[in-house]
Nucleic acid binder design. Structure first.
Length: 193
DNA sequence: TAAGTGATAGTT
DNA sequence: ACTATCACTTAG
């Protein structure tokens, strides 16, 4: 991956809320075969061990084990019989924490994303956690992979200045009032404004 | 607004 | 084994 420079491990080795905010404007990149699929992260949500909405709130299981591992890895899970969602693992080794990536503004490989999503409208390619995984070809095989090297990375990107909005998380039934969702103000690729 | 989809985790 | 639940998406 010569074109983009991955964020270093220490970027993830800190509080989940901090990482959730700092991931806005960074580039999620998946190299599949010869082509590069990528998009700017415009919406995130934080999940921590002491958080009732978090998969790790009731301890370590086979599914959530990656969240307890080293920061900077991908926690990919399957949900609602159809969809995958991707998180970046945060916090130090042994402490569960992750940031759900909820929406991307497509950058590289738009044609390929349109094919994968069977949609032409660019604003509908990756404006949701399941949609962005389908657009970038992220699935079970990507669970546990290292985001600081290899074919699936998060890279620095010059997105320019923006304002951040803090809001309650979406699609959960616990801790529904915690303002742990962050997004780029006014951005048309955000799942819900 | 509601149905679909199947893995997961907790309970028998 | 059984079942409720689920960090979602799409069509209508």
């Amino acid at each position: 991956m010569i074109k983009y420079r991955p964020l270093p491990r220490h970027f993830y080795d800190r509080s989940t809320l901090t990482v959730a905010k700092n991931l806005l404007g960074k580039l999620l990149v998946h190299k599949v075969g010869k082509s590069i699929l990528s998009g700017v992260i415009v919406e995130t949500e934080a999940y921590t061990a002491n958080d009732p909405a978090c998969h790790a709130s009731r301890g370590k299981t086979k599914r959530n084990a990656v969240m307890y591992g080293r920061p900077g890895h991908a926690y990919v899970y399957f949900i609602y019989g159809n969809h995958f969602c991707i998180n970046a693992v945060t916090e130090s080794h042994g402490i569960a924490g992750a940031v759900l990536i909820r929406a991307l503004a497509p950058v590289d490989g738009v044609r390929s994303m349109q094919r994968r999503r069977r949609k032409s409208e660019v604003t509908h390619l990756a404006n949701g956690p399941g949609k962005l995984c389908q657009a970038l070809g992220i699935a079970r095989a990507e669970n546990g992979c290292d985001l600081t090297l290899g074919s699936l990375i998060i890279a620095a990107y010059d997105f320019g200045k923006f304002s951040m909005v803090k809001a309650p998380r979406i699609g959960i039934s616990q801790a529904t009032d915690w303002p742990w969702r962050f997004y780029v103000k006014g951005n048309k690729f955000v799942s819900r404004l």
